[in-house]
């Protein structure tokens, strides 16, 4: 279980998070929605301590991730997989080397075992036989799948997805959504998905939270999301120009 308590974060004058409280329960697929630049990705990076909060704390399995030393922090991080928005594949490595990197660094597996495990994960994300390709040779959707294969190669307990369908065509986006659901069911993962793609939300979420102006303004299932009487939530879900959210970004 992940517990986020009273999280605050600012970048110079700009306040991004202003007291976020959120519990993530084991086995669920939590989707965090909100406008671009509302702090969804920032929140996600705090969970892995890739960013440090100005105030508040995060507990991962009852351990305060910010308080632990580097060795324990790395131990905790090994329980996570993170799919970055641009996949963040290492340009200088092949697909196989990208996926194998955590195994090479953290396990004593033989090269043959690593090769087998890489092939297994690539099969799982629907890209078998791509081991020798370089990131520059991959399409956007393929990069995300390879990024996902790398994220799950250590069999993590939690997988964090940062806008997994952004920039993809609807068919590829649907296939990534299906992959998130399948992996979550097959590997019994706890998933946190950050997105503003409402089609993804409908398919993937077992619970939705909405972040707006640095705070959580909605927490419930997809049905409750559609029945919400919050004007901000309704405008975001319907994608309407009319409403309390202005097209011009709000100066916080």
């Amino acid at each position: 279980m992940i517990k986020i308590h009273n999280l605050h974060k600012s970048f110079d004058e700009k306040v991004v998070l202003r007291g976020v409280d959120l519990d993530v329960f084991d086995g669920e697929r939590l989707v965090i929605i909100g406008r671009s630049g509302c702090g969804k990705s920032v929140l996600l990076k705090h969970i892995l301590n890739l960013m440090q909060p100005d105030k508040g704390y995060i507990l991962v399995d009852n351990i305060a991730i910010r308080k632990v030393g580097q060795k324990d922090l790395f131990f905790l991080r090994k329980q996570f997989g993170f799919l970055f928005q641009g996949a963040a594949l290492f340009d200088s490595m092949s697909v196989a080397e990208n996926v194998a990197l955590p195994l090479v660094e953290h396990t004593d597996l033989s090269p043959a075992e690593i090769e087998r495990k890489v092939a297994e994960k690539l099969e799982l994300v629907g890209l078998p036989g791509t081991q020798d390709l370089r990131p520059a040779e991959l399409s956007g959707g393929m990069k995300k799948r390879i990024g996902l294969a790398r994220a799950i190669v250590m069999d993590p307990k939690y997988v964090l997805y940062d806008e997994p369908t952004t920039g993809l065509d609807p068919i590829m986006a649907a296939s990534i959504d299906k992959l998130i659901i399948d992996l979550s069911n097959q590997l019994k993962l706890t998933s946190i998905v950050v997105t503003h793609d409402m089609q993804s939300v409908e398919k993937v979420a077992t619970r939705v939270v909405m972040l707006h102006v640095g705070k959580i303004i909605f927490n419930g299932d997809v049905q409750a999301l559609h029945q919400s009487d919050n004007a901000v939530v309704n405008q975001f879900v319907s994608g309407s120009i009319e409403g309390p959210i202005q097209p011009k970004p709000v100066k916080y």
């Binding site: 892995l48 922090l73 131990f75 963040a88 955590p102 660094e105």
Partner: peptide
Amino acid sequence: GTMKVTEQIDALESLAID
């Protein structure tokens, strides 16, 4: 620098690699 702006440094950190 390119690795930093394309989140590859964050990716290393997330994989528990310093």
